[in-house]
Amino acid sequence: MIQVTDLTKAYGETLAVDQLNFTIKPGIVTGFLGPNGAGKSTTMRMILGLDAPTSGSATVGGRPLAEHDQPLKSLGFLLEAGAVHPTRSAHDHLRALAVTNGISTARVDHVLQLVGLSEVAKRRSGGFSLGMGQRLGIAAALLGDPEVVMLDEPVNGLDPEGILWIRHLLQNLANEGRTVFVSSHLMSEMELMAEHFVIIGQGRLIQDISAPDLRAMAAGDSTTVRADRLDDLVGLMQNDGVEITSTDRSTVSVKGVTPDQIGRLARDGGIALHSLVPEQRSLEDVFMSLTADSVQYHGSAPLEMAA
């Protein structure tokens, strides 16, 4: 379990992280989302005890990570995929990390096999692709067989097969009862992976929300209707508070009437419905509108689209 309490980090006048509060629970994958510069990495560095909070605290299993006897066995982490000396082999890199926490070389070989790097483990890691670097970083995170796994942007640079692989890996880790905390700036990457979302923008908490609740937010209030005798159906639906806009000759968008009601009206009027589609925004859209105010660097066009 990771607990963040009133966590704040100021760089001069700028608040990189501003009064953050959240708890990351075991047994599920939690996505940590926010636009670039939202403070995700800073928050993770404070959880790791690398950056000192200006105020507030971040604990792992109730204590700051640095106070754990063998930190790697409590929390495995990936911060930067390229954080390896380029001429050192993956095997030597992991071995050097492992011995600090009393982890065996056999375990090093296990995690290398797990991430699919066994065959290149003795080669210099500088020749690794971005995706292989990510796999090596994930191997390092799993070295200590930790209760908590925290990964900063692990999907960056992975191919579709790699993304599928990491999704199943993280879900399995969560199914084993571990706490899995994964950051990304792309909702599309996270929505298939996470069961819970912590969304931040400009260092502030925007949403701490379960996946179903977030999907509920994505549900729109209009329904797109295509029908045989559209004009007759429009006449039946016409009522106070109902807003009907025509998209083209055979399609209308209706607000103020539920899809169920439209279906019943059509049946009662003997009208054949061709389609009845409740508006559903993508989670990406929801995420974009949630964070639109806090996007630090943006072009004007995408912002208009998001708004």
């Binding site: 982890i103 790097l117 065959e119 290149v120 995706g131 097969e161 692989w165 084993e176």
Partner: peptide, 22 residues
């Protein structure tokens, strides 16, 4: 993958959970 070996299944949880070292 480009030069990496085949990725083993993560379902094989014995790979994930090796015996805790001392």
């Amino acid at each position: 993958t480009i030069t990496a070996s085949p990725t083993p299944s993560v379902q094989d949880s014995s790979v994930i959970k090796t015996k805790r070292s001392s």
